[in-house]
Protein backbone atom coordinates (compact mmCIF):
# COMPACT_ATOMS: atom_id res chain seq x y z
CA UNK A 1 0.00 0.00 0.00
CA UNK A 2 2.76 2.42 1.00
CA UNK A 3 4.73 1.38 -2.05
CA UNK A 4 1.71 2.11 -4.21
CA UNK A 5 1.32 5.60 -2.73
CA UNK A 6 5.01 6.45 -3.12
CA UNK A 7 4.98 5.20 -6.69
CA UNK A 8 1.95 7.26 -7.49
CA UNK A 9 3.53 10.36 -5.90
CA UNK A 10 6.70 9.92 -7.94
CA UNK A 11 4.68 9.55 -11.13
CA UNK A 12 2.97 12.82 -10.37
CA UNK A 13 6.20 14.74 -10.90
CA UNK A 14 6.68 14.05 -14.62
CA UNK A 15 2.93 14.39 -15.22
CA UNK A 16 2.93 17.82 -13.59
CA UNK A 17 5.86 18.94 -15.74
CA UNK A 18 4.22 17.69 -18.89
CA UNK A 19 0.92 19.30 -18.03
CA UNK A 20 2.46 22.62 -17.01
CA UNK A 21 4.36 22.80 -20.30
CA UNK A 22 1.23 21.97 -22.28
CA UNK A 23 -0.72 24.56 -20.33
CA UNK A 24 1.94 27.18 -21.04
CA UNK A 25 1.89 26.40 -24.74
CA UNK A 26 -1.88 26.40 -24.90
CA UNK A 27 -2.14 29.80 -23.26
CA UNK A 28 0.27 31.25 -25.80
CA UNK A 29 -1.40 29.66 -28.80
CA UNK A 30 -3.95 32.40 -29.52
CA UNK A 31 -2.44 35.15 -31.71
CA UNK A 32 -0.95 38.08 -29.79
CA UNK A 33 0.05 38.34 -26.17
CA UNK A 34 -0.79 40.38 -23.11
CA UNK A 35 0.68 43.52 -24.64
CA UNK A 36 -1.55 43.31 -27.75
CA UNK A 37 -4.57 42.84 -25.50
CA UNK A 38 -3.38 45.71 -23.34
CA UNK A 39 -2.94 47.98 -26.35
CA UNK A 40 -6.37 47.04 -27.61
CA UNK A 41 -7.89 47.88 -24.24
CA UNK A 42 -6.15 51.28 -24.20
CA UNK A 43 -7.14 51.91 -27.82
CA UNK A 44 -10.77 51.51 -26.93
CA UNK A 45 -10.34 54.49 -24.57
CA UNK A 46 -8.55 56.42 -27.34
CA UNK A 47 -5.04 56.07 -25.98
CA UNK A 48 -2.51 55.13 -28.61
CA UNK A 49 0.74 53.41 -27.84
CA UNK A 50 3.53 53.50 -30.35
CA UNK A 51 5.68 50.57 -31.44
CA UNK A 52 8.60 51.54 -29.21
CA UNK A 53 6.59 51.62 -26.03
CA UNK A 54 5.06 48.27 -26.96
CA UNK A 55 8.50 46.78 -27.51
CA UNK A 56 9.66 48.20 -24.19
CA UNK A 57 6.68 46.69 -22.47
CA UNK A 58 7.41 43.32 -24.09
CA UNK A 59 11.00 43.50 -22.95
CA UNK A 60 9.99 44.38 -19.43
CA UNK A 61 7.57 41.42 -19.22
CA UNK A 62 10.09 39.13 -20.91
CA UNK A 63 7.69 38.48 -23.76
CA UNK A 64 10.35 39.07 -26.44
CA UNK A 65 12.23 35.89 -25.50
CA UNK A 66 11.48 32.48 -27.09
CA UNK A 67 8.65 30.60 -25.47
CA UNK A 68 10.82 27.80 -24.13
CA UNK A 69 12.97 30.31 -22.27
CA UNK A 70 9.92 31.96 -20.82
CA UNK A 71 8.64 28.58 -19.69
CA UNK A 72 11.93 27.55 -18.11
CA UNK A 73 12.21 30.86 -16.26
CA UNK A 74 8.69 30.51 -14.97
CA UNK A 75 9.03 26.90 -13.86
CA UNK A 76 12.43 27.57 -12.25
CA UNK A 77 10.88 30.40 -10.29
CA UNK A 78 8.21 28.04 -9.01
CA UNK A 79 10.65 25.30 -8.05
CA UNK A 80 13.38 27.47 -6.51
CA UNK A 81 11.40 30.24 -4.85
CA UNK A 82 7.75 29.20 -4.98
CA UNK A 83 7.32 32.25 -7.18
CA UNK A 84 4.55 31.87 -9.72
CA UNK A 85 5.40 35.15 -11.42
CA UNK A 86 3.67 38.51 -11.54
CA UNK A 87 0.23 39.04 -12.96
CA UNK A 88 0.53 41.61 -15.77
CA UNK A 89 -2.93 42.86 -15.32
CA UNK A 90 -2.97 43.19 -11.56
CA UNK A 91 0.70 43.98 -11.14
CA UNK A 92 0.77 41.67 -8.11
CA UNK A 93 2.37 38.33 -7.38
CA UNK A 94 0.20 35.55 -8.77
CA UNK A 95 0.35 33.42 -5.62
CA UNK A 96 -1.04 36.23 -3.50
CA UNK A 97 -3.90 36.80 -5.93
CA UNK A 98 -4.88 33.15 -5.98
CA UNK A 99 -4.62 32.46 -2.26
CA UNK A 100 -6.63 35.53 -1.47
CA UNK A 101 -9.55 34.00 -3.32
CA UNK A 102 -8.99 30.36 -2.44
CA UNK A 103 -10.25 30.64 1.14
CA UNK A 104 -13.69 31.84 0.11
CA UNK A 105 -13.77 29.43 -2.81
CA UNK A 106 -13.06 26.61 -0.42
CA UNK A 107 -15.75 27.69 2.04
CA UNK A 108 -18.34 27.99 -0.71
CA UNK A 109 -17.43 24.67 -2.32
CA UNK A 110 -17.36 22.73 0.94
CA UNK A 111 -20.63 24.14 2.20
CA UNK A 112 -22.40 23.39 -1.06
CA UNK A 113 -20.83 19.92 -1.16
CA UNK A 114 -22.06 19.11 2.34
CA UNK A 115 -25.48 20.46 1.50
CA UNK A 116 -25.56 18.35 -1.66
CA UNK A 117 -24.56 15.11 0.01
CA UNK A 118 -26.73 15.65 3.05
CA UNK A 119 -29.74 16.06 0.79
CA UNK A 120 -28.95 13.70 -2.07
CA UNK A 121 -27.83 10.55 -0.26
CA UNK A 122 -30.89 10.04 1.95
CA UNK A 123 -33.28 11.07 -0.81
CA UNK A 124 -31.55 8.75 -3.30
CA UNK A 125 -31.76 5.83 -0.87
CA UNK A 126 -35.39 6.60 -0.13
CA UNK A 127 -36.22 6.79 -3.85
CA UNK A 128 -34.59 3.43 -4.49
CA UNK A 129 -36.14 1.61 -1.54
CA UNK A 130 -39.61 3.03 -2.22
CA UNK A 131 -39.30 2.67 -5.96
CA UNK A 132 -42.38 3.91 -7.86
CA UNK A 133 -44.05 5.29 -4.73
CA UNK A 134 -45.54 8.78 -4.64
CA UNK A 135 -42.47 9.98 -2.75
CA UNK A 136 -40.18 8.57 -5.43
CA UNK A 137 -42.16 10.23 -8.21
CA UNK A 138 -42.12 13.56 -6.37
CA UNK A 139 -38.36 13.46 -5.95
CA UNK A 140 -37.93 12.29 -9.53
CA UNK A 141 -39.92 15.28 -10.74
CA UNK A 142 -37.79 17.56 -8.59
CA UNK A 143 -34.57 16.07 -9.90
CA UNK A 144 -35.64 16.55 -13.49
CA UNK A 145 -36.41 20.20 -12.76
CA UNK A 146 -33.06 20.59 -11.04
CA UNK A 147 -31.23 18.96 -13.91
CA UNK A 148 -32.95 20.84 -16.69
CA UNK A 149 -32.85 24.39 -15.34
CA UNK A 150 -29.50 26.02 -16.13
CA UNK A 151 -27.93 27.21 -12.89
CA UNK A 152 -27.37 30.77 -14.09
CA UNK A 153 -31.07 31.10 -14.84
CA UNK A 154 -31.83 29.79 -11.38
CA UNK A 155 -29.34 32.32 -10.03
CA UNK A 156 -31.03 35.20 -11.82
CA UNK A 157 -34.51 34.16 -10.72
CA UNK A 158 -33.50 33.60 -7.12
CA UNK A 159 -31.62 36.89 -7.04
CA UNK A 160 -34.66 38.67 -8.34
CA UNK A 161 -36.96 37.02 -5.85
CA UNK A 162 -34.60 37.57 -2.94
CA UNK A 163 -33.94 41.18 -3.79
CA UNK A 164 -37.40 42.31 -4.84
CA UNK A 165 -39.65 40.20 -2.61
CA UNK A 166 -37.51 39.97 0.51
CA UNK A 167 -35.27 42.96 0.08
CA UNK A 168 -32.18 40.86 0.71
CA UNK A 169 -28.77 42.05 -0.35
CA UNK A 170 -27.72 39.74 -3.15
CA UNK A 171 -24.55 39.47 -5.16
CA UNK A 172 -21.11 38.97 -3.68
CA UNK A 173 -20.42 37.30 -0.39
CA UNK A 174 -20.25 40.42 1.80
CA UNK A 175 -22.16 43.61 2.32
CA UNK A 176 -20.21 46.65 1.12
CA UNK A 177 -19.41 47.80 4.66
CA UNK A 178 -17.71 44.51 5.49
CA UNK A 179 -15.92 44.10 2.16
CA UNK A 180 -12.64 45.51 3.38
CA UNK A 181 -13.15 44.97 7.10
CA UNK A 182 -11.03 42.53 9.02
CA UNK A 183 -12.56 39.26 10.27
CA UNK A 184 -14.97 39.57 13.16
CA UNK A 185 -18.14 37.85 14.37
CA UNK A 186 -20.22 40.44 12.59
CA UNK A 187 -18.42 39.80 9.34
CA UNK A 188 -18.92 36.05 9.78
CA UNK A 189 -22.64 36.61 10.24
CA UNK A 190 -22.66 38.84 7.18
CA UNK A 191 -20.98 36.05 5.21
CA UNK A 192 -23.57 33.53 6.33
CA UNK A 193 -26.44 35.76 5.26
CA UNK A 194 -24.89 36.01 1.81
CA UNK A 195 -23.76 32.44 1.52
CA UNK A 196 -27.13 30.68 1.42
CA UNK A 197 -28.08 31.92 -2.03
CA UNK A 198 -25.03 30.67 -3.97
CA UNK A 199 -25.01 27.48 -1.91
CA UNK A 200 -28.65 26.84 -2.75
CA UNK A 201 -28.08 27.49 -6.43
CA UNK A 202 -24.96 25.34 -6.63
CA UNK A 203 -26.51 22.57 -4.53
CA UNK A 204 -29.76 22.28 -6.45
CA UNK A 205 -28.36 21.09 -9.73
CA UNK A 206 -25.72 18.82 -8.23
CA UNK A 207 -28.21 17.40 -5.73
CA UNK A 208 -30.51 16.54 -8.59
CA UNK A 209 -27.92 14.55 -10.50
CA UNK A 210 -26.58 12.94 -7.34
CA UNK A 211 -30.04 11.72 -6.35
CA UNK A 212 -30.35 9.97 -9.69
CA UNK A 213 -26.91 8.39 -9.35
CA UNK A 214 -27.57 7.24 -5.79
CA UNK A 215 -30.95 5.84 -6.73
CA UNK A 216 -29.47 3.88 -9.64
CA UNK A 217 -26.60 2.56 -7.50
CA UNK A 218 -28.97 1.42 -4.80
CA UNK A 219 -31.33 -0.18 -7.29
CA UNK A 220 -28.36 -2.16 -8.60
CA UNK A 221 -27.44 -3.36 -5.13
CA UNK A 222 -30.86 -4.00 -3.58
CA UNK A 223 -31.75 -7.18 -5.49
CA UNK A 224 -28.31 -8.73 -4.89
CA UNK A 225 -28.34 -12.06 -3.06
CA UNK A 226 -26.27 -10.79 -0.14
CA UNK A 227 -29.10 -8.41 0.76
CA UNK A 228 -31.49 -11.36 0.86
CA UNK A 229 -28.98 -13.24 3.02
CA UNK A 230 -28.88 -10.37 5.47
CA UNK A 231 -32.66 -10.25 5.51
CA UNK A 232 -32.85 -13.99 6.11
CA UNK A 233 -30.62 -13.50 9.14
CA UNK A 234 -33.31 -11.41 10.79
CA UNK A 235 -31.72 -7.98 10.53
CA UNK A 236 -34.11 -5.06 10.50
CA UNK A 237 -34.60 -3.37 7.13
CA UNK A 238 -32.93 -0.16 8.23
CA UNK A 239 -29.87 -1.84 9.71
CA UNK A 240 -29.32 -4.07 6.73
CA UNK A 241 -29.77 -1.19 4.31
CA UNK A 242 -27.13 0.86 6.05
CA UNK A 243 -24.70 -1.97 6.54
CA UNK A 244 -24.84 -3.75 3.19
CA UNK A 245 -26.21 -2.14 0.01
CA UNK A 246 -25.57 1.47 1.04
CA UNK A 247 -21.97 0.71 1.88
CA UNK A 248 -21.35 -0.70 -1.59
CA UNK A 249 -23.47 1.87 -3.40
CA UNK A 250 -21.26 4.60 -1.93
CA UNK A 251 -18.15 3.38 -3.73
CA UNK A 252 -18.83 5.35 -6.91
CA UNK A 253 -19.03 8.51 -4.84
CA UNK A 254 -15.53 8.06 -3.60
CA UNK A 255 -14.28 8.12 -7.16
CA UNK A 256 -16.00 11.47 -7.67
CA UNK A 257 -13.50 13.09 -5.29
CA UNK A 258 -11.06 13.00 -8.20
CA UNK A 259 -12.93 15.72 -10.02
CA UNK A 260 -14.30 17.43 -6.95
CA UNK A 261 -11.02 19.16 -6.13
CA UNK A 262 -10.34 20.72 -9.54
CA UNK A 263 -13.98 21.78 -9.58
CA UNK A 264 -13.16 24.04 -6.65
CA UNK A 265 -11.45 26.37 -9.07
CA UNK A 266 -13.04 25.98 -12.45
CA UNK A 267 -16.52 24.86 -11.47
CA UNK A 268 -19.55 27.11 -11.46
CA UNK A 269 -17.90 29.93 -13.44
CA UNK A 270 -21.18 31.21 -14.77
CA UNK A 271 -22.92 31.25 -11.40
CA UNK A 272 -19.95 32.97 -9.78
CA UNK A 273 -19.96 35.70 -12.43
CA UNK A 274 -23.71 36.18 -12.33
CA UNK A 275 -23.65 36.45 -8.54
CA UNK A 276 -20.43 38.45 -8.54
CA UNK A 277 -18.75 36.07 -6.11
CA UNK A 278 -15.15 36.79 -5.10
CA UNK A 279 -14.08 33.21 -5.87
CA UNK A 280 -11.37 31.80 -8.06
CA UNK A 281 -13.47 30.99 -11.12
CA UNK A 282 -14.11 34.55 -12.39
CA UNK A 283 -10.45 35.42 -11.88
CA UNK A 284 -9.46 32.43 -13.99
CA UNK A 285 -11.78 33.47 -16.77
CA UNK A 286 -10.54 37.06 -16.69
CA UNK A 287 -6.89 36.01 -16.78
CA UNK A 288 -7.53 33.84 -19.81
CA UNK A 289 -9.31 36.62 -21.65
CA UNK A 290 -6.55 39.11 -20.90
CA UNK A 291 -3.83 36.59 -21.85
CA UNK A 292 -2.40 37.20 -18.43
CA UNK A 293 -0.24 34.18 -18.91
CA UNK A 294 1.44 33.70 -15.54
CA UNK A 295 -1.84 34.00 -13.68
CA UNK A 296 -3.64 31.69 -16.10
CA UNK A 297 -0.71 29.27 -16.13
CA UNK A 298 -0.68 29.11 -12.36
CA UNK A 299 -4.40 28.38 -12.36
CA UNK A 300 -4.09 25.61 -14.91
CA UNK A 301 -1.18 24.14 -13.01
CA UNK A 302 -3.17 24.27 -9.79
CA UNK A 303 -6.15 22.58 -11.41
CA UNK A 304 -3.91 19.81 -12.73
CA UNK A 305 -2.21 19.31 -9.41
CA UNK A 306 -5.58 19.13 -7.69
CA UNK A 307 -6.82 16.59 -10.25
CA UNK A 308 -3.81 14.39 -9.63
CA UNK A 309 -4.06 14.71 -5.86
CA UNK A 310 -7.80 14.15 -6.01
CA UNK A 311 -7.47 10.92 -7.94
CA UNK A 312 -4.73 9.74 -5.61
CA UNK A 313 -6.92 10.42 -2.60
CA UNK A 314 -9.91 8.70 -4.15
CA UNK A 315 -7.79 5.67 -5.10
CA UNK A 316 -6.44 5.39 -1.58
CA UNK A 317 -9.91 5.79 -0.07
CA UNK A 318 -11.34 3.19 -2.45
CA UNK A 319 -8.65 0.73 -1.47
CA UNK A 320 -9.33 1.39 2.20
CA UNK A 321 -13.07 1.00 1.82
CA UNK A 322 -13.20 -1.92 -0.61
CA UNK A 323 -11.18 -4.99 0.34
CA UNK A 324 -11.56 -6.38 -3.20
CA UNK A 325 -9.34 -3.56 -4.46
CA UNK A 326 -7.00 -3.72 -1.51
CA UNK A 327 -6.35 -7.44 -1.59
CA UNK A 328 -6.60 -8.54 -5.20
Amino acid sequence: MLKFVVKRLLWMIPSLFAVSFLAFVLIQLPPGDFVTTYIATLASSNEVIDQNTAAQLRERFGLDQPMIVQYLKWIWGIISRGDFGISFEWQQPVSGLIWERMALTLVLALVSLIATWALALPIGVYSAVKKYSIGDYTFTAFTFFGLSIPSFLLALVLMYVAAVEFGADVGGLFSPEYEAASWSLAKMYDLLTHLWLPVAILAISSTASLIRVMRANMLDELPKPYVTTARAKGLSEFRLLIKYPLRIALNPFISTIAWLLPNLISGSVVVAIVLNLPTAAPLLLQSLMAQDMYLAGAFVLLICALTLIGSLISDILLALVDPRIRLE
Binding site: P225, T228, T229, I248, D322
Partner: peptide
Protein backbone atom coordinates in the same frame (compact mmCIF):
# COMPACT_ATOMS: atom_id res chain seq x y z
CA UNK B 1 -32.12 -20.26 8.65
CA UNK B 2 -31.44 -20.26 4.95
CA UNK B 3 -28.54 -20.83 2.58
CA UNK B 4 -28.51 -19.86 -1.05
CA UNK B 5 -27.31 -20.99 -4.43
CA UNK B 6 -24.49 -18.65 -5.33
CA UNK B 7 -22.17 -18.58 -2.33
CA UNK B 8 -20.07 -15.76 -3.80
CA UNK B 9 -22.80 -13.22 -4.25
CA UNK B 10 -24.71 -14.34 -1.17
CA UNK B 11 -21.93 -13.07 1.05
CA UNK B 12 -21.14 -9.39 1.23
CA UNK B 13 -17.98 -8.59 -0.72
CA UNK B 14 -16.84 -5.83 1.63
Amino acid sequence: AMIFQEPMSSLSPV
